[in-house]
């Protein structure tokens, strides 16, 4: 009954140096990565960021789950590159470097494809490293130290908790409907299961609120915290270094007009052609597989 439905991305317990860094210091890095990634178009910086973030994975001992979560990049990356090569997201004129029959392939499209992908890859990897090395409760405890209201914090934490619960609830209701001869898979089964899931959710929440209030939730006195999150000098160093690097590089990049290497890097026509073939094939393959899979059901 109480089988645990795990989230695909969850904390991997450990005691590595990355695990021990203060959650807020890690958060500075994640936010910094996102800011920097979206303010530069320099692919050397973008992919260096991704590589640096990836180096953290073996240090934290989360390489395998990280790679697994990164599988999402396959459809994202292939579609991004394939579409950018035939329809760049920049102003014309585009330089046509090769063609596939009547389809022109653009070199600058590939560059911007790499920029967009680099932004996603760098931000995703650092965010995953953070999520996989930080206990959610520690993160929320840190938020509380930043004066985020207790109730808001509690709501965020509760939401994380409820996702696997509702996943399981949906599973139970679907099996119950299947056992009564209703359709148990596909979209047709989802709608009739909504009502019982929501009714169940309301009942659960009411019971939970009674239980929480019975344990003093919402009392006015001073609250203490069981989880202690320390801010050691090393955490301050990590956080400040992250903030400085990001602020420096972002400012420089913005001053140089987003700092693109588009003019300096020229891809050979063969490279563009091959990249297009590979990414388009993967993308088309994924779509085809998805269609076949849904028909089979």
């Amino acid at each position: 009954m109480s089988m645990q439905a795990a989230l695909p991305i969850a904390m991997i317990p450990g005691n590595s140096i990355i695990h021990r860094i203060n959650p807020l210091a890690k958060l500075v890095w994640v936010v910094g990565y996102v800011v920097l990634a979206f303010s530069t178009q320099n692919i050397v910086i973008l992919y260096s960021m991704a590589v640096f973030a990836f180096i953290l994975a073996p240090i934290a001992g989360v390489t395998k789950p990280l790679l697994k979560a990164c599988l999402i990049l396959v459809p994202v990356g292939s579609s991004l590159l394939a579409l950018q090569i035939i329809a760049p997201a920049v102003e014309r004129p585009w330089t046509e470097v090769a063609s596939l029959g009547p389809l022109p392939l653009y070199g600058d499209g590939l560059y911007y494809g790499f920029v967009l992908l680099g932004r996603i890859v760098a931000s995703l990897i650092i965010a995953l490293v953070m999520v996989m090395t930080t206990h959610p409760s520690d993160l929320f405890t840190s938020f509380a130290k930043l004066k985020v209201p207790y109730t808001l914090n509690f709501m965020l934490a509760m939401t994380l908790q409820l996702i696997p619960v509702f996943q399981r609830e949906v599973g139970i209701i679907l099996s119950a409907q299947k056992s009564r001869g209703m359709k148990g898979t596909g979209f047709a089964a989802v709608l009739p299961s909504f009502v019982p899931v929501f009714v169940g959710a309301i009942e659960r929440v009411q019971q939970l609120s009674i239980s929480l209030e019975s344990r003093g939730f919402g009392s006015n006195g001073v609250k203490t915290s069981y989880r202690q999150v320390r801010g050691r000098p090393s955490d301050w160093v990590v956080g400040i270094v992250g903030a400085l690097v990001v602020a420096g590089l972002s400012t420089y990049s913005i001053m140089r007009g987003t700092w693109s290497l588009a003019g300096e890097i020229q891809f050979s026509s063969v490279f563009v052609f091959v990249t297009f073939l590979i990414s388009a094939t993967i993308f088309a393959g994924i779509i085809l597989a998805a269609i076949l899979f849904s028909f089979k059901k």
């Binding site: 206990h135 959610p136 409760s137 509690f154 934490a157 994380l160 908790q161 659960r204 939970l208 239980s211």
Partner: peptide, 8 residues
């Protein structure tokens, strides 16, 4: 189960 709200 309806009374549980925490991660540990």
């Amino acid at each position: 189960e309806f009374q549980m709200s925490q991660m540990s």
